[in-house]
Amino acid sequence: MSWRPYFTTARLALREAATYRLNHFLSFVVAVVPLIALLLLWNTLLGPQQRLAGFTRGEMLTYFILTRWLYEFTGPVVWWDIAYEIREGDLIFHLLRPEWYSGYHFALIIGSKLPYALVGLAVAAPFALSVGVGWVWPPGVAAWAAFALSVVLAVALAYQFTFLSSLTAFWLEDNKAMNLLMDFVVPLAAGALLPLDVFPSAVATALRALPFAQLLYFPALVYLGRVDPGGWWAGVAQQVGWLVALLVINGWVWRRGLRRFRAVGG
């Protein structure tokens, strides 16, 4: 299989997305607004020397700013294009082409989100600066590499959730219920709302066992240097395990969905 068409797709999506830089900027400004209250809240709750659930003020603020930026890329969504193509019958044009449908949309998402990531850094930077010396950096090059790999795997895992939720369009008339799941349940389970350690220990243990924790909570802890080498290998193994499991599940759902697909839309 040639990867060239997918790189071309990603490049074209990137070029198109880069055209709307101001739109990305404003979208990210909207996304980081909740940070204002979160930073004020944690400044109220924690002084420089205090800890909450094992997190210092600097670690907590770094966690929230980092995860706000990361979740735009590792947060699964119902991808409107896939759902639309299935419902309207336009999927047929993709099936006629020598392409891997899932790979095509993955390339589109990556291409469209890369400029967003860079613009997002510019928007998040003032918040990071406001943390001052309390801001936490990974302790060394190895920690940066460990963080980068965990993010790459989280992005791949998030896409598998995105693909799976979008494939429900084969069976469902609209995606409202899936959107509810993606908007409320997944962020809570992924650690976007709070670090999982803040929840009661039984709840935190249960949430850590779910794949959603590998999307955000795990990479954020790696960044903060709160994961030892053994924990990192275990976390990455979990990410790979869930990734393989979801690839298998998605393959099965895709084949079942295609059997229902009539290409007439409606």
Partner: peptide, 9 residues
């Protein structure tokens, strides 16, 4: 979850 750790906000 926060009130598990602090008595008041």
């Amino acid at each position: 979850a926060l009130y598990l750790h602090v008595p008041a906000i």
